[in-house]
Amino acid sequence: MQTFLQFILNALSLGSIYALMALGLVIVFGILRLVNFAYGELIMVAGYAWFALQGPGWPWVLLAVGAVIAAGVVSVLTERVAFRPVRSDSLNAMLVTSFAVSTLLQNSALLLVSPRARAVEVPSVLNNSIEFGGLRLGVNDLVTIVVCGAVLLALGALLRRTTLGIALRAAADDFRMLRLLGVRADKVIATAFAISGVLAGVVGVLWITRIGAVTPTVGAAPLLIALIAVVVGGMNGLAGSIVGGYLLGTLTVGLQLFLPQEVLAFRDAFIFAVVIIVLVLRPQGLVKGRYSAERVA
């Protein structure tokens, strides 16, 4: 029973991070049909922003907010500079652009900071744990669950209550119609990138403080995770990606527990095989969203 509860807690904690990762990727995909390969680098940006701000001994909250803002700003900048000009071209042009943006950001970190890992100062309280009825609750895990829950709720309210949020969801349904109603495409897309960047920022802060260091390639793993969660959960709905994230978190923790060590090395190969199988057999994902093939010109 205790092991089971422990398992649930770990799965919940990892799953919430994965869900946010997936959500940040799918919010842009839903509108532009673009898999933003540069998404992982936004997480990296958040990490380096934290690293850059940590010197003077500012409060942790300030570092976190700064990191989130940095990721959001960079995300919007990439949209303005790189993606907007190719938006009306082929899907492949956008995909390659995102690949180029990813390479650009990653190598900028190499160039401007260092190829080597930079340690980030983590609030020591995060490494503590609370004993509770024989259960070890890591403060880290608790914070993660609470923060992710709060972000999900806030995002839900934004998308349901504000006009811009409603427009964002409408854009995933039928972008052409949204523009006919006078909503500027540029504004909606920029908003999507801003939200994606902010989510990447939150994920970045949680991820980096878990690892304790930031490197130029720190975003690669989260990108792959988000990609899997999105494909498995369904690329046409926000709910699907959240489900996909929690599912993947549970699966990862489960495999870690039950798989023998020598097979564990191939874990990612198994998971990506699942991705291909889902794409082939159930392209709409496990959670069916609304089909929309239209792209924005």
Binding site: I166, R169, A170, A172, D173, D174, R176, M177, L178, R179, L180, L181, G182, V183, R184, A185, R290
Partner: peptide, 23 residues
Amino acid sequence: SSEAIAGLGVALIPEDRGIFPSL
């Protein structure tokens, strides 16, 4: 752009009606 034209006061209801089903 179509959003600018809408801004001038032209409203088009397309043949497929353009309802947003998820809203």
